[in-house]
């Protein structure tokens, strides 16, 4: 098992249910899981995540996180 931190604010917090701080959720997952599988495992539908990034790098839902990594999630943002 390994630990991944998912971070998100605003409209995503309702689904993310942060537990580390106001914006961050700690998740224990099996190694090799994709971001999509991790989200589904904690009850977040992929449709609620429009973008994700690690550091200054955008990643897609096929991304496989490393132990201890923080992934910032963005909800769909399409208003004008």
């Amino acid at each position: 098992m390994m630990t991944v931190y998912l971070k998100g604010g605003g409209l995503l917090r309702e689904y993310l249910q942060p537990d580390v701080d106001e914006y961050t959720r700690r998740v224990e997952v099996a190694e090799g899981r994709t971001l999509r599988q991790i989200l589904e495992a904690i009850g977040i539908r992929p449709v609620h995540v429009a973008m994700a990034f690690v550091g200054n790098r955008l990643v897609n839902l096929a991304y496989v996180p490393s132990d201890g990594e923080t992934i910032t999630l963005r909800p769909p943002v399409q208003g004008g």
Partner: peptide, 8 residues
Amino acid sequence: AVAGFEGQ
């Protein structure tokens, strides 16, 4: 685009 407190 914008939504809530976020935008891009």
